[in-house]
Design a protein around this nucleic acid. Structure first.
Length: 145
RNA sequence: GCGGAGGGCCGGACGGCCGCCUCGGCCGGGGGUGACCCCGCCGGGGAGGAAAGUCCGGACUCCUUGAAGCGACGGUGCCGGGUAACGCCCGGGCAGGGCAACCUGACGGAAAGCGCCACAGAGAACAGACCACCGCCGGCGCGUCCGGCGGCCAGGGUGAAACGGUGGGGUAAGAGCCCACCGGGGGCCGGGCAACCGGACCCGCAUGGCAAGCCCCACCGGGAGCAAUGCCGCAUAGGGACCCCGCGCGGGCUGAUCCUUUCGGGGAUAUCGCCGCAGGGCCGCUUCAGCCCGAGGGGUCCGGGUUGGCAGCACGAGCCGGUCCGCGAGGGCCGGCCCAGAUGAAUGGUCGUCGCGGGCGGGGAGACCCGCCUGGCACAGAAUCCGGCUUACAGGCCCUCCGCGCGA
RNA sequence: GCACCCGUAGCUCAGCUGGAUAGAGCGCUGCCCUCCGAAGGCAGAGGCCCAAGGUUCGAAUCCUUGCGGGUGCG
């Protein structure tokens, strides 16, 4: 296994940034209602090799001085991804990737929806998924300015 | 050793790091008057043989007034047993296939009735007509021709199927006309709970196929589904429009009410209430029983609302072991165990080692051994829960049996 | 969780009370017509009737199972 540039990787453990680490940054919450997903679907989106990301800054976000606004993340794997086993596996990998990346690179008060793609989301290497997600977040944040 | 048949089972293993759901402990902290809630800690559990398809059968809830009969509709279909039940399973019978082990079978009824059987063929479903065949008589263009009478049976390119088959006797020619064998039918006897099997006897022998065409017979079956259903909370509303059926008769009964009074009572019955009868409603119909309504009942559409919570919801036709009964499916008894409960939906992510598979190279006569590489390791994810069926599935293990070959 | 419908030519559909050549329209190919094209005329190709079993002498049609697509209700 030799991915291009595995940053801080000596043994087999994933990057140490994946530690739980919530108390400093904004709390993470999973999106559950249909309305939230529909709002996110109208927002900007960025596709990558392994997944598709929709992201937007909520209007009511950023409270002054209060607790940091939460980051909401949703996951979508439609029937196009495959049967139930394939969909669940894709969603689980997306969740694992989000836990590793969003805590550092996500912005408080934003909603993100991670969308799985047929075949590739389950087959792509985990390193690749992580860098895909980081790239997509960076592009979304740049365009939002 | 090769080939085959049946049955049972498994369906990656171990370990780091980081996570998820749930139950319990009540240990620590926080919140609350409280029930309790949140965070942390410790301990336990956490997908399948098909969780799938939704093809059957139930449990459980709600709806339907109950029973009987009839009818309609749907299903099942050899016999016996198992089971809560089944269209499932087991055992048996029969039929077909295979050398065999074994496998397969919607396998009731076609003399209850209706319908259909294309093409071909003389004829396709009462069985007779037609062509041919044989004998006799007659006629003449004497050919082995025509006509008449009689025999009425075999034969007739066909066809999926043609009124028993084969052989022999017999005859003018023939025919169950007679005989033998096979097939068929009938009641009888014996065995078996039964399906069915066996036996002798009688009948020369009359009645195709399709019921996964209608149908007949026997048996079974109310409808809907956990988004069922119950409770709590929140919001809105105590709405609007339209349609259908109906508001009958009697008793004054004195409880209201009204009139009258000599205050004891008497009268009235429009109205409210009561009683009785009609009437209406409650299963498709009928009967019986019962209940309800008796002046309101029912339906359709629009409008409004729709982030909810808890119960149902996991101790069950449960799992494991032993023992007894049974050929078996299975059942009885004893002991032990608690074993998923999510709801944008947990049971994982990632890395390493091993195993399996594949590829390449080397050694060896061969079996095989060694090294390296490896995006490979199936089908597939509980959603109220069980019993089955069906379908999908990489690879592997165990047991029993059959045929052939070789050896002793 | 239920209920139901449909798979036939490249496309849209007939045929589905079993019977032998599986049809129609559009499209396609060739020819005619025209200076060329359209329209029109003539001729032709194109189907293992979703799959696998079964019933029957015979199946697109009847039965069973599966696959794919779609609709409705709660």
């Amino acid at each position: 296994m030799t991915p291009p540039k595995a940053p801080d990787q000596t043994d087999g453990t994933p990057p140490s940034a994946a530690l739980s680490c919530p108390e400093v940054s904004a709390p993470l919450r999973t999106m559950k209602t249909r309305a939230e997903f529909l709002r996110a679907a109208r927002a900007d989106k960025q596709g990558t090799k392994g997944l598709l990301v929709q992201g937007r800054a909520r209007a009511e976000a950023s409270p002054e001085g209060g607790a940091p606004a939460e980051i909401r993340v949703g996951y979508t794997c439609s029937k196009k991804v495959g049967n139930a086993v394939a969909r669940n596996r894709a969603k689980r990998r997306l969740r694992a990737a989000a836990r590793a990346v969003i805590a550092d690179d996500g912005r408080p008060g934003w909603d993100y929806v991670l969308i799985g793609k047929r075949e590739v989301t389950a087959a792509r290497s985990f390193e690749g998924l992580l860098s895909d997600l980081r790239y997509a977040l960076r592009k979304l944040h740049e365009r939002a300015r």
